[in-house]
Amino acid sequence: MEIHIQDLGFSHGDTPIIRDLSCSFFPNTFYGILGPNGSGKTTLLDLISGFLIPDRGQVLLDRTDISSLTPKKIAQALSLVSQNYYINFPFSVEEVIMMGRHPYIDRFAHPCQTDMDRVSQVMDITGISHLKHRKITELSGGEKQRCIFARALCQDTPVLLLDEAFSNMDINHTLHMLGIIRELINKTKGTVICVLHDLNLAAAWADEILFLKNGTIQAKGKTSDIITQETIEQVFNVKSKVEFNEYVQAKQVYFKTI
């Protein structure tokens, strides 16, 4: 599924958050979105997922304006892992992941065998099967994030939007989830758009990177081309050293401690 964004604009009151932003996302690609705090990363994902309605411009999913699609159709096309993983009521982990099947289950129907198989498969892949009967409210931050990630996988959408989805995971689990994303793209030719803060993880895993600043695209392109000392200084206002790392087999960024 292709996503085309045309002349998108969005403001909160008088404060513009996104200004005249245009770009496209294609299948079979892992996009990383990076940028300083308040640069409009989350708002951009909200606009792509139809959660917010833009002031100007439009978001097209395969040539269809997202505002003309029903919530159910959107939910079958896009899944979202948002920054907020707080859940108010003590649902079990299994119940939470089953909620990812919501767009496929009719209002009065029970989950069918496919849904249940998918839920247990996703729990296996993400390594949370042992938490199955635990209450989501009793889990640690990183465990909750893995559950929410599993719920989004379970939604089986061609596009996966991740908003700092790994912020509370340890490095082992972060790499595990990134591995799952890579595998997912290889197998289903899906599109993954991932907001993250770790430049080195982005440099090692993303195919393409989009740098946002003040609601516009500062730079975008293939990861190996776009990660440079100049771009990083322009976007984040920090001095750094970028070099190819043999062990990672990708460019890595180093910062000086003052």
Binding site: F51, P71, I74, A75, S82, N84, H102, P103, I148
Partner: peptide, 8 residues
Amino acid sequence: RAASSLGV
């Protein structure tokens, strides 16, 4: 956000 992304 999550509920909306699941089609509610």
